[in-house]
């Protein structure tokens, strides 16, 4: 309970948590509120917002309901962002733990591979990966994770280097546990907290990367995405700028919510540490 109290002490954390809660509700409610096809034509084309209350945010170039698209887009953004971040954190912690625990040649090779992934611009890598394998939700998630695992890997490795000298690791060795078992059952769980501290930054980056990919037309073609909506609206930018502006605001709010909530978690953890 005190953990929650700490978290909700700063106004930034409260704002972040509220935005995220609202977003989750929106994502969950999308199929209930707007059942049927969100890509179906709902009214006259290019209806401006706040004109017709059955279509509060108006319609796009093809007469599709912008609000329904926005709600369904929230699902894609959240799903891709969370899945890609989870994959990146998982891959990163495993590779970092292996490198740090094994040391020697394994460490050297794994870290040079990490360097290589950090040298290639992650967005270009994602672009190439999606264009070669073909756009679908899973491929987009994999492409984003491919460029995002290096940070967690470095943090995990640094943490393992200090943990592997601790007594309980020596104890596990004396018990005759297999090194891989020690690495993944004793060391990895203790590495996770510092790796998870990166999660807000990684989720935010993943959401932005997904938006950029679908803006360039490399998102899953069967799903509504905010990036895709912005790209659609771009063709009528001069006459109906709201079509690009509205999904962009949704993106900014989402990413800001993730950042603020993340800062809140870090600050409350720091406050608890200074108390104890």
């Amino acid at each position: 309970m005190s953990r929650l109290c700490h978290f909700f002490r700063t106004p930034e954390a409260i704002a972040g948590a509220s935005i995220l809660a609202l977003l989750v509700v929106v994502a969950l409610a999308a199929p209930l509120l707007f059942s049927g096809d969100s890509q179906a034509i709902a009214g006259p084309a290019l209806l401006p917002p706040f004109q017709d209350w059955s279509l509060p945010l108006g319609t796009d170039r093809l007469g599709r309901d912008v609000l329904a698209e926005l709600f369904h887009g929230a699902r894609t953004s959240l799903a891709v962002g969370l899945a890609a971040a989870a994959a990146a954190l998982l891959i990163g912690s495993i590779i970092g733990t292996l490198a740090g625990f094994a040391g020697g040649l394994v460490d050297e090779v794994l870290m040079r591979i990490t360097d290589a992934f950090q040298t290639v611009p992650s967005f270009l890598l994602a672009l190439a990966f999606v264009s070669i394998v073909g756009p679908s939700l899973g491929v987009v998630v994999a492409a984003i994770a491919l460029g995002a695992w290096t940070g967690p890997a470095r943090v995990a490795r640094a943490e393992v280097l200090s943990i592997r000298e601790r007594d309980y690791v020596a104890g596990a060795r004396v018990l005759g546990m297999h090194p891989l078992e020690i690495a993944f059952r004793e060391v990895l769980p203790n590495v996770l907290p510092s790796v998870l501290a990166l999660s807000s930054v990684i989720v935010a980056a993943a959401i932005l990367t997904e938006a950029a990919l679908s803006f360039l037309g490399l998102g899953d073609p069967n799903r509504v995405t905010w990036g895709g909506m912005i790209a659609e609206g771009r063709t009528v930018l001069r006459t109906a700028p709201f079509l690009s502006v509205v999904p962009g605001i949704a993106l900014v709010l989402t990413v800001l919510g993730v950042y603020l909530a993340g800062e809140g978690v870090v600050e409350s953890a720091a406050a608890r540490r200074s108390l104890s």
């Binding site: 803006f215 912005i230 700028p241 690009s244 502006v245 993106l251 709010l253």
Partner: peptide
Amino acid sequence: SIGSLALYAVPGFWLGLVLIVIFAV
């Protein structure tokens, strides 16, 4: 600090479009 965080949350391509609407169109 908060302002810069908000800026960091903006997708670059969208900022570009908004700048086009304001300063070019």
